[in-house]
Design a protein around this nucleic acid. Structure first.
Length: 218
DNA sequence: ACATTAAGTGATT
DNA sequence: AATCACTTAATGT
């Protein structure tokens, strides 16, 4: 099978449900097939977006860097995905705010940016595809934010405490901050701070080796 | 009184 | 939220 045949079959395999046939044919004409080796960058922060990669094969890890260079992986892109966040960028001819790293060997079809705009008008399925993937990406990001948010540990502690109250049928719990930390896979200092906050909010009363749950409703 | 362990805090990542 | 470094408070012997 020739290379273009391979690209064609992969493209149709993964996208024919999502995109109309005319669009896929046009993609084949204008797109440039590229292979990215594992560990290589598809795109780095600050790069100019000249093409949109349609992923045919492999996994791409999308990474965001903070000011200090600390990296946080935001989500993964797989076949059938494309980096929808980059659409806003390319329509306004901006540079990338994310880093895309090939987690495995990746095959993409690189679509020139200029066409993205035209296709939005020309193809209904393309519009849906873009909006859908934007939505999906957003949901994914909300999820990662949730798991990082401060609120989460506080909620986990609260659930932990009220569960204990239910089980023991006793609002006075004998436990140390250290024990809670171990159960919740956290650290003592973090627990101490959150318990102090709950104490100040008068949801609990805590002293050494003891936590009393004050606001408990079945 | 002294050692040990639990809890509080500020700064930093 | 986690880690570090250090302080302060409670307890046991």
């Amino acid at each position: 099978m020739s290379q273009t045949e391979t690209v064609k079959s992969k493209l149709f395999d993964t996208y024919s449900e999502l995109l109309e046939k005319n669009l896929l044919e046009e993609m084949l004409e204008v797109g440039m097939p590229r292979t990215i080796q594992e560990g290589e960058l598809l795109i780095d922060i600050g790069d100019e977006l000249t093409h949109i990669p349609l992923i045919l094969d492999g996994v791409v890890k999308i990474i965001r860097k903070d000011k200090h260079g600390c990296e946080l992986s935001i989500y993964y892109l797989e076949p059938g995905d494309t980096c929808s966040i980059s659409f806003a960028n390319c329509i306004n001819k901006k540079t990338s705010i994310f880093k895309g790293l090939a987690e495995t060997e990746v095959h993409v079809l690189a679509i020139p940016v200029d066409l993205i705009d035209d296709w939005l008008v020309k193809y209904k399925s393309w519009r849906h595809f873009i909006i859908d993937s934007y939505h999906f990406r957003l949901l994914e990001m909300v999820e990662t934010v949730d798991s990082l948010a401060f609120l989460k540990m506080e909620q986990r502690i609260w659930k932990y405490l009220t569960d204990k109250v239910k089980i023991s049928n006793e609002v006075d719990l004998e436990l140390t901050h250290q024990q809670i930390a171990e159960d919740l896979n956290s650290t003592r200092v973090v627990i101490t701070r959150i318990l102090k906050k709950l104490h100040e909010e008068e949801k609990i009363y805590s002293t050494r080796n003891r936590v009393r749950v004050l606001e408990f409703f079945e």
